[in-house]
């Protein structure tokens, strides 16, 4: 891991010195234990702040949506897929982006750590290749990273970036992944149970829109919930406003969501709608044999039409 970090800093430094990019977007250490955060680097000297570890939970692609500069960006597997999506949908130009690919064994889910902490405060965390040591007042616990990885990472098929200009670190082994087992299990529940689940999740929504703002696929200049003339949506906490917001967002990202998990990681009230996104992803796969962000050539299914597209659902 340290090797990879060293390599990353060198690559970034060189890119800036050789003026191949104007800006590097990567990760630096944050101000609280466990936290890293996005950093924007324009001076070669600053590249020493760059880090890469399993705490790099943010999706940096959301920053590409607004920048016009030539950017060098640190990208995990899922991020590289998001970048492909943004290129295909003409949001960014391939030639303006230098992708520094980082193989990823999964990102740590801070919510899982909170469950272990049971109200105690985490004061320090030390990361090794396979374990994390959590330290606090009267607390010292070693936990296997495997147990802490985010659900999206568990079912990730693309741990190594799909598209990159340079790869730092060694490719990680992929192994067998049960991509849709959790969705299938969830889908086997009764309508009432599923409805109750989604209602319960959305009932906690505080409409902060962090899920939308962090989503690499959400780039509408004005979101439908923000429009006031006409007003499509109320601003209340009623399910007709909150649940509908999440459902429409899910449909807007159909065939585009790469299940990076950023939306569930940023949620301050632990709303877990991944199952809904994942189900739509599965449907797109089954109906159109399409996976988002795998290559630059294939046209997105929602942006194209084929004579043999399935149409049983049109009544």
């Amino acid at each position: 891991m340290q090797e990879c970090e060293k390599e990353l800093r060198e690559v970034a430094k060189k890119l800036l010195l050789e003026k191949k990019v104007d800006l590097i977007i990567g990760y630096e250490e944050g101000t609280l234990p466990l936290r890293t955060r996005p950093i924007f680097i324009r001076e070669a000297d600053e590249t020493k702040k760059l880090v890469w570890n399993s705490r790099c939970e943010n999706s940096l692609c959301s920053y590409l949506k607004t920048t016009k500069e030539r950017v060098g960006i640190v990208a995990k597997g899922c991020d590289s897929r998001s970048i492909i999506g943004l290129i295909k949908e003409r949001q960014i130009k391939r030639e303006n982006i230098f992708i520094i690919g980082v193989p990823c064994s999964g990102i740590i889910d801070r919510k899982k750590i909170e469950d272990i902490l049971e109200g105690r405060e985490l004061l320090e965390c030390i990361e090794s290749d396979s374990q994390i040591t959590l330290k606090g007042e009267g607390l010292e616990e070693k936990v296997d990273k495997d147990k802490l990885v985010h659900a999206s990472c568990k079912s990730c098929k693309y741990r190594n970036p799909v598209l990159y200009d340079t790869l730092v670190g060694k490719e990680v082994s992929q192994g067998e992944v049960e991509e849709y087992s959790d969705v299938e299990e969830f889908a086997s529940k009764s309508d009432d149970e599923r409805w109750a689940y989604f209602n319960d999740e959305a009932s906690r929504c505080i409409r902060c829109y962090a899920c939308r703002n962090v989503c690499p696929a959400c780039y509408c200049p004005q979101c439908f919930v923000d429009q006031s003339l006409p007003t499509w949506f109320g601003r209340t906490l009623h399910p007709s406003d909150t649940l509908m917001f999440h459902m429409i967002r899910t449909l807007h990202i159909a065939g585009r969501c790469v299940d990076c998990g950023a939306c569930s990681r940023v949620c301050p009230v632990n709303i877990e709608l991944r199952m809904l996104h994942k189900k739509v992803q599965k449907d797109v796969k089954e109906l159109y044999d399409y996976e988002a962000g795998i290559n630059l050539e294939e046209l997105p299914p929602m942006a194209t039409f084929k004579m043999d597209d399935p149409q049983e659902f049109i009544k």
Partner: peptide
Amino acid sequence: HQRCLGCGICTYL
């Protein structure tokens, strides 16, 4: 402001 995502978490919490 560079890093800020522009969400409402800070204000709503």
